[in-house]
């Protein structure tokens, strides 16, 4: 077995393993998006999803040798960045709503300074809009 044969087989095995790992990453990120108790968690999950998709595109580009996918990766990165910036602006403008039941997911500690204060009890309709 020469070095070039070994390198070809090694690259194929690495591509398969990487696709499996990236698929696991996709599913974990989607689980966070679905579970995510607050809106910023979901936005962060979408941001992570675009970065995992860029990694996916690079691995598929190595696998197929079709390097034109890199342009799609650049465009996807741009769209993901702009979407995250717009969502951050929206979170800043929207404020915190009653839907964010964030206390349910935060783990309790013994000396919790926020214990009993509750979370997300202020709604948008409270200020008269």
């Amino acid at each position: 077995m020469t070095l070039s044969d070994f390198s070809r087989t090694f690259l194929e095995v690495c591509v398969d393993l990487s696709l499996a790992l990236l698929g696991i990453a996709f599913f974990l990120t989607i689980a966070r998006i679905v579970l995510g108790p607050t809106l910023p968690d979901r936005v962060l999950g979408l941001d992570m999803l675009t970065s995992v998709a860029i990694g996916f595109i690079a691995v598929i580009g190595i696998d197929t040798g079709f390097v034109l996918y890199v342009d799609i990766a650049i465009a996807l990165g741009l769209v993901g960045f702009l979407a995250t910036v717009a969502f951050a602006r929206f979170i800043l403008a929207r404020g915190k709503t009653g839907d964010d039941s964030e206390r349910q997911d935060l783990r309790d500690m013994d000396d919790d300074p926020f214990a009993g204060k509750g979370g997300g009890n202020r709604t948008v309709t409270e200020d008269g809009r």
């Binding site: 990453a25 974990l28 990694g55």
Partner: peptide, 13 residues
């Protein structure tokens, strides 16, 4: 790289 991405997704969860 895919290990890093998987660990990042696991940490996010």
């Amino acid at each position: 790289g895919s290990l890093f991405a998987a660990v990042a997704a696991f940490g996010m969860l």
